[in-house]
Write a protein that binds this DNA or RNA. Structure first.
Length: 316
RNA sequence: GCAGUGCUCA
């Protein structure tokens, strides 16, 4: 079953759920063993392709096939429902799994809480937080980033910042780079990228290693608060710890340069990306389309769009 | 032994 599950998961994660289903039926017919992992793979695959009917069908029959869905099976569906904005269905399923005697864990709660926060469903957010506590779970960094990220998304910068400061100052909260990254984001929103910058450089002393997201967040802050030259300077000369700029870093500056129609910087960046072996992706291309429109190079714009339609979204 | 959560670029 272990070996076959690997294959099932590979198929399901690559959008070939019906092939996975065929393979699963073949296993069944041959009398080869399968288990709850196998069904969970199918559920994952059908959710990924948004074939909800098949996903829920798998969920409904697996129990009668000797494979009771467990917390992970339910959580997989919940995650996809939430990512699709179907929060009411998610809340319904959350109740249902409890009724079926399957207790949600903190991962499950974090997923649903995140979507509630992103939809600013304040009442339900409070209720769920209370439920988490009542079930004996303590909020972890995922809980906290879900909460703070939602606040930030709703434009409640000050509230998010206060919340994060509380977490950071607290003795008994686990803090990691992601928690700090949202805090950097709030600082940048308040045009305090300098403060974020000095804080990121002191994180190591607290035993937290900044990642590329930390630096890219601040890089964007510098682009918005100051100018592209300052951003380029940070890009080139600053110490990124053991990290190095990645495609997102390039796209961050490229986006800023495209927005203001800065031809020389756009050119320079494209050369550098080629030289350093970074391939443009769909985000880079979208930036360039904005750029072409901004400077009135409509033929170039259409050419790029056409090439994306025929050659796929990643240009060359 | 095999499966599920957060933070950056349009």
């Amino acid at each position: 079953a272990y070996f076959h599950n690997k294959i099932l998961w590979a198929l399901c994660k690559s959008g070939q759920s019906y092939n996975a289903l065929a393979f699963f039926c073949y296993l069944k017919k041959k009398g080869i063993v399968y288990n709850v992992y196998s069904y969970t793979a199918l559920v994952y695959g059908f959710c990924l392709e948004k074939i909800w009917g098949e996903a829920f069908y798998c969920l409904s029959v697996m129990g009668t096939d000797g494979c009771n869905p467990n917390v992970i099976t339910y959580t997989v569906i919940l995650k996809f429902l939430c990512d699709d904005g179907k929060i009411q269905e998610a809340l319904g399923l959350l109740e249902k799994m409890e009724k079926e005697g399957c207790d949600p864990d903190l991962v499950t709660f974090n997923i649903v809480l995140r979507e509630l926060c992103h939809q600013n469903m304040v009442v339900e957010m409070g209720e769920l937080l209370e439920l988490i506590d009542r079930k004996g779970f303590a909020p972890d960094p995922f809980t906290n980033t879900a909460w703070a990220g939602g606040l930030l998304k709703m434009g409640k910068v000050e509230t998010a910042k206060r919340f994060l400061l509380n977490i950071i100052m607290s003795r008994d909260c686990v803090i990691d780079a992601a928690v700090y990254n949202i805090y950097f984001h709030t600082l940048c929103c308040e045009h305090k990228s300098e403060e974020a910058l000095s804080l990121v450089n002191s994180l190591m002393k607290v035993g937290i290693k900044p990642n590329n997201i930390s630096y890219n967040t601040i890089l964007k802050g510098i682009c918005e608060e100051k100018n592209i030259d300052e951003a380029l300077e940070f890009f080139d000369r600053s110490r990124w710890g053991t990290n190095t700029p990645d495609l997102v870093s390039f796209n961050t500056i490229l986006s800023a340069a495209c927005k203001e129609g800065n031809t020389s910087v756009v050119r320079k960046l494209l050369c550098r990306m080629e030289y350093e072996g970074f391939k443009l992706n769909v985000v880079s291309a979208t930036c360039l389309i904005h750029y072409f429109c901004k400077v009135g190079k409509i033929p170039e714009c259409l050419k790029l769009l056409e090439s994306m339609m025929t050659n796929g979204p990643n240009p060359n």
